[in-house]
């Protein structure tokens, strides 16, 4: 028998009975989540989860386990969200949430998010740069001697999935109205893989077309003129903008089928003037990072150290800005929730 419950980010969770009324971490948004109690909270009512107040009261009278103490140490001041709609507490409005959970009030406050996650983001950037650089150097040096570079691609793909998952935590936690803190995914391989699949799906379900056209034009368009560069940038921008928006749509209800043009258009309409961020600013930065990354990979062949340094810097910056933009867009989406 297991307890089924839903995190406020929308993730359907399952826990063993002995975890009842205890705290755990949501593998999707990385936020602490309360496992519902098996005991009725009031006589004569059906089984319902503990409210945060009840849980705190219960915990005060109970010796804490080592893992629980660790979790609390990581998230010392973060109040737990209500986990179930059947809670006695009335469902708070977004404004009430923002007040109570200290959700970022201004856009610049979201800049703090990547700083709070700096250790993880920088670590991912360094590992990714080593992995990607090694693959490129392997392609240039060892491919003819049958170097197992495909294995390297798989490893880098897995690390990339973890990185996506980390960035996605910023979005999912904001969409769930969880306050400013650093949210991290679990180390289980399943969730980052799901995250990687979600990003891949969102890419294949649309942005792959303009991206392919841009690559085709770059390869087969001869020496690119200013007009060609305008088209390449335009296609890249469309691809990046749609990808960002599709990822947000898929995360809102944790449904892949929401990554479709109708939902994306609805999201743009909902964001109003704020849509300039995912439609223009974020894609511009994404294109700049792609170009910088390609330059770094090209430079690797001639100046290994400089190339690697540039690549690490580029990936660091990319992860930083991704976390910021997803956090910001998540907060805006939460605030404009109908």
């Amino acid at each position: 028998m297991s307890i089924k419950f839903i995190c406020s980010c929308g993730k359907h969770l399952r826990a063993r009975d002995e975890m009842a009324a205890r705290r755990s971490m949501c593998p999707r948004c990385g936020a602490p989540v309360g496992v519902p109690s098996l005991r009725p909270t009031h006589p004569g009512t059906p089984v319902a989860p503990l409210t945060p107040q009840e849980r705190l009261r219960l915990n005060r009278n109970k010796p804490r386990s080592a893992s629980e103490a660790l979790t609390t140490a990581i998230f010392p001041t973060l109040p737990l969200p209500a986990c179930s709609p059947s809670s006695n507490e009335p469902s708070p409005t977004p404004k009430a949430y923002r007040r109570r959970r200290q959700l970022e009030q201004h856009w610049y406050e979201c800049l703090a998010y990547p700083f709070l996650s700096r250790n993880v983001l920088v670590s991912f950037a360094l590992v990714l740069s080593v992995g990607m650089g090694s693959i490129v150097l392997a392609l240039q040096s060892f491919l003819q001697s049958r170097f197992p570079w495909i294995a390297g691609v798989v490893v880098v793909g897995l690390i990339l999935a973890y990185a996506y998952s980390t960035v996605e935590c910023a979005l999912a936690s904001a969409l769930a109205g969880k306050g400013a803190a650093s949210y991290l995914p679990t180390w289980s391989a399943a969730d980052p893989l799901k995250s990687g699949v979600r990003w891949l799906f969102c890419f294949v379900a649309g942005p792959i077309v303009p991206t392919s056209l841009a690559i085709y034009l770059w390869i087969y368009g001869g020496d690119l003129t200013a007009l060609d560069w305008a088209i390449v940038v335009e296609l890249g921008g469309v691809a990046a903008a749609y990808w960002f928006l599709a990822i947000i749509c898929a995360n809102q209800r944790n449904r892949l089928r929401d990554a479709n043009p109708v939902r994306v258009a609805q999201l743009v309409q909902r964001l109003k003037y704020r849509a300039i961020v995912p439609v223009l600013i974020a894609p511009a930065l994404a294109i700049a990072h792609v170009l910088l990354g390609l330059s770094a990979l090209t430079a690797l062949a001639q100046h290994v150290f400089a190339g690697w340094l540039l690549l690490a810097g580029c990936l660091c910056s990319a992860l930083f800005w991704s976390a910021f933009f997803f956090r910001l867009l998540g907060v805006w989406c939460y605030c404009t929730k109908p």
């Binding site: 693959i135 490129v136 150097l137 392997a138 392609l139 240039q140 491919l143 770059w218 390869i219 390609l294 990979l297 090209t298 690797l300 062949a301 001639q302």
Partner: peptide, 12 residues
């Protein structure tokens, strides 16, 4: 020229 460069890991 470009496909050869891409194929060989963005070779110079």
């Amino acid at each position: 020229e470009r496909t050869q460069r891409v194929r060989w890991g963005l070779a110079p």
